[in-house]
């Protein structure tokens, strides 16, 4: 009962924030300079004819209606699932985003998982007497990772591994010549389903550089926050007591300490997941990765308003889902946190 009521309350507030975000996204799109109709009409010899064409285009796009009406039409489109029709591609926005979303998630999910594992691991040597050197090394690395932005890493990797050494592919998700039927859009799942296992190797090779470029920075974030929260947890009386009970230092650090220290790290992870979703734009562009980021860049360039709005709404939905998952994990990790 308690959990269901909590769930209902969460759903209510999620819906409310979704509406607010759509309104803001919608207004922003109308306020930014640049008239999509203007971009689409092109030029004509006769100004009068041109103006007639322009008016016709505005009516076609629905831009001549009052702004609240436009919003309501868009809202209707959201609930029918097609999120409006893209000006540029002339197809419903919903399916267009869904087609690109898997590629972005293929970048972001491994990044988050790797950053969590490596970042947490790097924050532990501090607590083993003979590993002081590893802690110093990790802190040095963390400093380096923090001061260099991920797109610098990207360029750096492309020059070294892509061009000089020529060992890793620098663009796309698959080698030329590998055809894969699209079932879910996730390459690993699709290749398993269709039995084309050679695609997995090719995909992983393409994945290394963009994921590495994104991960390095995330690792340093996780390392820093987890190390400092471990530092305070390891001073707690219960850790001393665990030691007095005869538990090994390994068990104390990785089970007793970490479980307490993980809450702030998890919060950061949730935030970073959503930051990465939109932050991978540059990396997607750099590695010609066919994800949402690339789509968003072109949508903005062409003032493809329904597409921009659709992508923002998609991000919004993902943020809401992520927050819900992270909040549920809190309760699993720490029984003192209850759903109310």
């Amino acid at each position: 009962m308690g959990f269901l009521a909590y769930l209902a309350r969460r759903a209510g507030s999620a819906l409310l924030s979704f509406f607010i975000i759509t309104i803001i996204a919608f207004i922003l799109c109308r306020v930014v300079p640049g008239d999509p109709a203007l971009l689409m009409v092109g030029s004509a010899v006769n100004p009068e004819e041109w103006f007639k064409e322009y008016q016709k285009m505005r009516a076609l796009l629905g831009l001549d209606r009052p702004i609240y009406e436009q919003y309501l039409i868009w809202l209707r489109d959201i609930f029918t699932g097609n999120f409006g029709v893209s000006y540029r591609f002339n197809v419903p926005v919903g399916p267009l985003i869904l087609e690109r979303l898997p590629a972005t998630l293929e970048l972001v999910i491994p990044t988050v998982v790797l950053a969590l594992l490596i970042g947490v691991l790097l924050s532990t040597p501090k607590f083993f007497r003979r590993m002081a050197w590893a802690d110093k090394l990790a802190s040095g690395f963390s400093f380096l990772g923090m001061s260099i932005s991920y797109f610098i890493w990207g360029i750096f990797f492309i020059i070294i591994f892509g061009v000089s050494l020529n060992v890793l592919p620098i663009s796309g998700r698959l080698d030329m010549g590998i055809e894969l039927p699209r079932i879910t859009g996730f390459i690993i799942i699709d290749s398993l389903l269709s039995g084309r296992f050679e695609a997995i190797g090719s995909f992983l090779k393409h994945l290394i550089m963009p994921v590495a470029a994104l991960t390095l920075y995330e690792i340093t974030l996780i390392h820093r926050i987890n190390r400092s929260s471990m530092l305070s947890v390891m001073k707690e009386d219960y850790i001393l007591m665990d030691k007095a009970k005869g538990l090994s230092q390994f068990h104390i650090v990785f089970v007793r300490g970490l479980r307490n220290a993980l809450i702030p790290t998890l919060t950061l992870l949730g935030v970073q997941f959503t930051v990465l979703l939109s932050g991978s734009v540059i990396i997607e562009k750099m590695f010609a990765w066919p994800g949402i980021g690339k789509l968003l860049v072109s949508a903005v360039t062409y003032r493809d308003l329904p597409l921009i709005q659709g992508i923002i709404a998609t991000y919004c939905i993902i943020v809401i889902i992520t927050n819900f998952i992270i909040d549920s994990l809190y309760g699993k990790i720490n029984p003192r946190i209850k759903y109310v």
Binding site: E236, D237, Y238, I239, L240, M241, D242, K243, A244, K245, G246, L247, S248, Q249, R256, R259, N260, I333, N334, P335, R336
Partner: peptide, 28 residues
């Protein structure tokens, strides 16, 4: 050694702490 010592702690020598509320690990 540290591992010999940890086999002794809690087994042959144990401690009752000053701060009972803070001495049990919260998520367990």
């Amino acid at each position: 050694s540290e591992s010999e010592m940890s086999r002794l702690r809690g087994r042959y020598i144990s401690i009752i702490p000053e701060t009972p509320i803070l001495s049990l690990n919260p998520p367990f």
